[in-house]
Write a protein that binds this DNA or RNA. Sequence first.
DNA 1: CTCTTGCATTTTGTATACAATATGCCAGAG
DNA 2: CTCTGGCATATTGTATACAAAATGCAAGAG
Lengths: 232, 232
Amino acid sequence: MDGSTFPIARSTLPEAAAERLRTLIIEGELAPGAKLNERELSERLGVSRTPLREAFRMLAADGLLVQLPNRGAQVVALSREDVRGAFEVMGALEGLAGELAVKRVTDADVADLRALQVQMEAAHATHDLPAYYRINRLIHDRLNTLAGNAVLEQTYRTLNARLHALRFRSNLNPAKWDQAVSEHRSMIEALAARDGAALRDLLVGHLRAKQQAVLDSMDNRDDKNLLGGRQP
Amino acid sequence: MDGSTFPIARSTLPEAAAERLRTLIIEGELAPGAKLNERELSERLGVSRTPLREAFRMLAADGLLVQLPNRGAQVVALSREDVRGAFEVMGALEGLAGELAVKRVTDADVADLRALQVQMEAAHATHDLPAYYRINRLIHDRLNTLAGNAVLEQTYRTLNARLHALRFRSNLNPAKWDQAVSEHRSMIEALAARDGAALRDLLVGHLRAKQQAVLDSMDNRDDKNLLGGRQP
DNA sequence: CTCTTGCATTTTGTATACAATATGCCAGAG
DNA sequence: CTCTGGCATATTGTATACAAAATGCAAGAG
């Protein structure tokens, strides 16, 4: 027999529960700061407490929950500082992804990305925000995959999930949106030109703009107290 | 009452078990690729299987274990590619740490680091490898703390633990050692001069050299099959 | 002799029972 | 009226029992 394997996706209850909880957190169904009662949640998910507690450990490692000994788990409430820090790290990771991607990207990859860019600009032109975010994410994920570094990709995804739990999608002013789309165009050109340094700088700058937008929106949200439980 | 808290360190069994296992893995007591039998381990650690399984989930999230459904957990066996990737990410993280540290470092911090540098050079002069590694780690940790970014620090520590499980300490040739010590001197000077870009480049280069040394040592170890279970 | 197939054993997965800790309320002192 | 202390309740922590799956071995077919 050759070495190839075809493992079927068999998920255990802890994994399934973690996945479900992850979605509930990111969708905002479970709000930041919310206390998670084990018995109640296990009944709602239809599993016993044992696998649920394993799910908690996984999500805590991802930074989506915090666990206090003898006091249970609660959805993380990111402080302004946490968000700033997470975006700084994301910037470094995406910058690295850009540098690495340049070394491995093929013309076919560039063509794919250009196609995505066209779709993104279409979404921009029609003010289709959900489509824009979806394509935006596709492009960034693609770039990370192109980097060919599994550790990077995993770290990136984990951090991204944590930030998505903020649900900062709501507000994006027109000027910033125009700017972001234009930056994306430049990024793809830098990639096509195999200019790693330029791509890195663009990505870091892009992330910094996003960071600023998110921090501004945190200041202006009426539920900001839910997001900033830790600082005064 | 003011808002300050003084929580005493109360650890739960899963955390304690994870900590113990982490040590066993990093010390090499549990070798890469080793299968972990739940019943046996729980007896050796003196806990039941339930908290042990939670510990497994934590370590798996840290990348120290891999868990296969219905087939238990085993100590991760890092492939050459994994090591390359992890060092690339470490480089990006340390580079960021350097840039951020420059913005916050005080003269007192610089003085502390210079003192550590002196100790490091003493260890180098007397060929005290363990002391060298200890001080080396102190310096890098200090730099990361100086960056003032909790997300960065946590990501850095996790990744570092994974690499430490390789136990690559064994071989370091004299030329590389001299080079590393000299690079450290430059790093502290760049920090003292608040030159973030220079510090970043030094750190990235430093990591790249370390990466190369580790990859070389992996090629030359007779137990390399234990480290590279995944690739041919 | 080799390969398959079925069974016994081992090991992991999940639920539940019991223990330890935390929480909230009420009574009583000041 | 406020604060403290102690008890009842709720919740989390851990061990154990049972279920499901994988593993290893041996017997039989080819």
